[in-house]
Design a protein around this nucleic acid. Structure first.
Lengths: 168, 168
DNA sequence: GCGATAATTTACCTCTACGTCAAGGTTAAG
DNA sequence: CTTAACCTTGACGTAGAGGTAAATTATCGC
């Protein structure tokens, strides 16, 4: 039989998921997970003694974030990497318990993160606008089509009432 | 030795643009235009005697539509082809001056087109929703980041007022 | 300690959406 | 008629995003 993990530690954010499980839960393949790691989109996870990767819930979150960015926004992995890195910096900033040193460095990081975020925000706004426009055009279209359909149906009914043989 | 205009073309929307011009105006390359034709996304345009492609304004419209679908929605060309084909059917329907025959066939085509359009409409709606959500999350985030920045700036000012040397 | 699974790395393969020559034909201008 | 600019059809190349296969190693229940 296969190997089974010991499930005693489902602690807050300890890594305990093997690649297969992560793949299953995120819907991407193992290959993809390794590929993302290679490309720097996922930080190298911890490992077991034997070398098996061990992921945390946070890693799953990140994979899902990547998927969203890919599918919704059509971002390339390189762009996603940028975003992810900016977030990473922010997380560090957040975690750091304000060591008095290097305040201006922290400020620089923060500015960088804001810059990246603003950029992404703009992209999203543009997409939303363009899509909203498409949406209303599609609504119009559907209305038109349905109108035509009604007309056709009307004619069919008329023909039937007039005793015209309907072909089925 | 040249015929000038191709007389079998449609009167209303006569094709007169060479590929270079179309490329320039749409922002895609000539290669891309030929590629789209190859893949069935653009119907084969008319040609000059010598074989040069001649496009119409409608072709430009279509290229721009393709670009929108690609960039905004992240559709693959294969999917775009489907959409484009459905539209094509609709255009035919629209042009047909209701030949009394085959009303039920027309209805079937119309239903098919409506189906495709509805599908696309749903996809767009989903994207808009997801993106709108992302948008507001990003707004929150930006606010947070800016708050942190203000805090940092506040500290820098305090330090300066207190005579602490700021490292730059 | 075995055997069945699951993971690991390395290496090559695929598919998409074009890019980039190459070798030649066409058109318009002079 | 010549010539530059434009276009034609190949054919091969490439970057991105993984898929697939092979050989080897780990883990775990028994």
């Amino acid at each position: 039989m296969g190997h089974k993990r010991n499930p005693d530690a489902v602690a807050s954010d300890e890594p305990y998921l093997q690649i297969g499980e992560v793949a299953e839960r995120t819907g991407v393949t193992q290959r993809t997970l390794r590929f993302y790691e290679e490309k720097g989109l996922l930080k190298p996870p911890s490992r077991m003694e034997g070398g098996f990767r061990l992921y945390s819930e946070a890693d799953i979150q990140r994979v899902e974030q990547i998927k969203r960015l890919q599918q919704l926004l059509g971002f390339a992995l390189a762009e996603i990497k940028e975003m992810v890195e900016a977030e990473e910096v922010l997380m560090q900033l957040r975690a750091q318990y304000r060591p008095e040193a290097a305040v201006s460095q922290k400020k620089a990081q923060l500015l960088r993160a804001i810059e990246v975020t603003e950029h992404q925000y703009d992209l999203i706004r543009q997409k939303v606008n363009a899509l909203t426009e498409m949406q209303s055009k599609m609504e119009e279209r559907l209305a038109t089509y349905r109108g035509w359909l009604d007309q056709l149906d009307g004619r069919l009914r008329t023909e039937r009432r007039a005793g015209v043989k309907a072909k089925v």
